[in-house]
Design a protein around this nucleic acid. Structure first.
Lengths: 191, 191
DNA sequence: GATAAAAACAAACAAGCGCTTGTTTTTGAG
DNA sequence: CTCAAAAACAAGCGCTTGTTTGTTTTTATC
């Protein structure tokens, strides 16, 4: 016999949903197992520890964000184009997996030891990719002579806050939101 | 004899610090009492429940943000001036009480029942104050014909993400950050 | 220095926590 | 139908959780 490959994914998805709703520390192993329709002990045929679940969810989230941004930064487009596509890519990752994105942004600090460090490093890498886009735009004269750090913080604030309000299936489509955000960032509010 | 008025405040400050560091569910009553230098049971001479602590911290946070923004919205200044002062006021609240702001933004969802609703309403009120500034600027023609909702989300993203990176005493002064953020928002990145 | 409020201790409570163990049931390929 | 792997159960481990209770110590005031 073979293990149903889907079972573990199912558990991850359920844990992801609960972590995003009630937080990691606010979710118990019994919450997860109950939502799976099994007893709490039975979960441990599929996982080693509760923190494994959190790590796997956040790590996949980190990889999704990194993997979507890397090709854009490496492309030969202009900084404005890269910025636009970066925001779009970021929104698409959130759209495709809002719950995992929420856990990634909101719960990753509950990780301990080496796993905390691993995710922290991936977050840093992600920020550096954004920094590269802004540095390029500032250096080439395409953007104003902005303080790169503050410009990056502004863009990242917009990107990183998205999980708090964006709801797939709502009126606002991810691509449209991204386009308008980038437009506002590029040309400003002032008439 | 009279109760030392400072004792309860001390406990609140310690709980605030721990909640901001480890989260509400990640902090135990024994963590708090130990940091206070007393036994866990002794805490209950000063508080009724653990959630009381969270509520008092988040409610004070909400009031601080609301109280700082209200007079600005009501003032007779231009929308741009209001926007500038609003961002400054927001940053000042965070600067003056980073830990409480962190708990307010990050842990308020751990509240239950009526208290959850109370804080949610205050958060809504706060967003509506920001909306008023943007609506005014758009209506008067001072700002471009922006989608008000998306413009508000952009500004709120920048404001609400601040607690994640701003550190009082660092190189960046709150007023300076606010000025540069507003400048970028008003006139955009494009050269 | 007596007094009473305030603050702390000492000890424990019921409930819930993450997780382990040994056993039984379900499953699907041969 | 057989049989072994996989998945679930049943029971409970040691520990921690938020909180309560009754008692003692500290504190400021008269």
């Amino acid at each position: 016999m073979m293990a149903r490959v889907g079972r573990r994914e199912e558990i991850l998805a359920i844990a992801c949903r609960l972590f995003s709703q009630k937080g990691y520390h606010g979710t118990t192993i019994r919450d997860i197992s109950e939502a799976c329709g099994i007893l709490s002990g039975s979960l441990y045929a599929h996982i080693n520890t509760k923190e494994d679940l959190l790590f796997e969810i956040t790590d996949r989230g980190a990889e999704a964000f990194l993997g979507s941004l890397e090709p854009i930064v490496k492309s030969g487009k202009t900084a404005s184009q890269k910025l636009r596509e970066a925001v779009k890519a970021h929104m698409h990752v959130i759209e495709a997996n809002l719950e995992a994105a929420t856990v990634f942004f909101h719960e990753w600090k509950a990780l301990t030891g080496d796993r905390y460090e691993q995710i922290r490093k991936k977050r840093d890498s992600y920020e550096r990719l954004w920094a590269a886009i802004l540095e390029e735009g500032i250096k080439s004269g395409e953007f104003k002579q902005l303080d790169e750090k503050l410009a990056r913080l502004l863009v990242l604030s917009v990107a990183n806050w998205t999980y708090q309000w964006y709801r797939p299936g709502g009126k606002l489509k991810a691509d449209e939101v991204a386009d308008r955000f980038v437009e506002m960032i590029l040309i400003g509010f002032q008439a």
